[in-house]
């Protein structure tokens, strides 16, 4: 293998990994605030992207607007997931909400299969015709766009969480749910809002997956769910900076093995990476959750 191929595969992977980072942030944010895992999150993300092409089928839309519709639709679906799977289910039972979200994942998947007759749907790409070259090394325009859009989403999220009162109240709930309520913050609204915000990020990620793969398929749901969870574990449950770094790293790692070992072997190495982390760094790269005391 030569160094140029190595750099090329790692770079492409890093850019695509920003999508995994967004998915990982979604899992980790809900875990940080509620100490719960929403397994239907990946499905909601892809479903949001499906809604956006359904809308685009009626009204011709610029690709960027399609992306925004995906984000908003997924935010709405995430809110419904909160209502159906968390709001009225006793949170004290660790398995109840988890199983509810497994059911929701399959339900969303079935709805998508039913609505599309199981056929993959083409998704509009952005800047796919741009290719920046330096000799044999090059950058795909669509991947750069994905990376930049993800970066903007992350910066906005971090700004919200660390600078606005909404975000600070959310972090207060994550750190001390009882005291937060007794400071006048509604747990229910904070939880619902957290779901909507993760949904917005997920819908954006779902649209970008559709755009970079070129099609949407229900088969995308399980891989992004699993990779989102892996990112979440490697980054440390509840840590947003951890999820960002882990997302980029998993993207680079899997693309490296895609380039040098082929598509059928790729995910095996990703799973091995998960086990390595669970054995040697079970707390994630930073080994300290930033969310809870």
């Amino acid at each position: 293998m030569d160094w140029l191929d190595f750099f090329q595969s790692i770079t492409d992977g890093l850019l695509f990994g920003s999508i995994y980072a967004l998915i990982g942030i979604g899992f980790t944010l809900i875990f940080g605030v509620m100490h719960k895992i929403n397994l239907a999150y990946g499905a909601a993300s892809i479903a949001g992207a499906y809604v956006s092409i359904a809308v685009a089928a009626y009204v011709p839309l610029p690709a960027l607007v399609t992306f925004l519709i995906a984000a908003i639709a997924s935010g709405g679906i995430a809110f419904l997931i909160y209502l159906a799977n968390f709001r009225f289910i006793p949170l004290a039972s660790p398995l109840a909400t988890l199983m509810a979200t497994v059911g929701m994942l399959i339900l969303i998947d079935e709805i998508v299969v039913h609505a599309t007759d199981g056929m993959p749907q083409p998704y509009p790409a952005l800047f796919a015709d741009i290719y920046i070259e330096w000799g044999d090394f090059g950058l795909r325009g669509d991947l750069i766009f994905i990376f930049v859009l993800s970066l903007i989403a992350m910066v906005v999220l971090m700004f919200m969480l660390y600078r606005t009162r909404l975000g600070i109240a959310t972090r207060a709930v994550a750190q001390q749910p009882v005291a937060a309520q007794l400071a006048g913050i509604s747990l229910d609204r904070t939880n619902a809002l957290t779901f909507v915000i993760t949904g917005l990020l997920g819908g954006l990620a779902g649209a970008m997956i559709g755009a970079s793969v070129g099609v949407l398929s229900p088969l995308l749901v399980v891989p992004i769910t699993v990779k989102g969870l892996i990112v979440c574990v490697i980054g440390g449950l509840g840590s947003i900076p951890g999820a960002i770094i882990a997302g980029l790293a998993v993207g680079a790692f899997e693309n490296f093995f895609l380039a040098f070992r082929g598509v059928t072997e790729r995910d095996m190495y990703v799973m091995l990476l998960l086990f390595v982390f669970l054995v040697f760094r079970p707390g994630g790269i930073f080994s300290r959750s930033v969310a809870r005391d």
Partner: peptide
């Protein structure tokens, strides 16, 4: 039960 990872000022602001 303070919000340990918020600043002193933020602890009061959210209340």
């Amino acid at each position: 039960r303070l919000f340990g990872h918020l600043t002193v000022w933020q602890n009061l602001w959210v209340a």
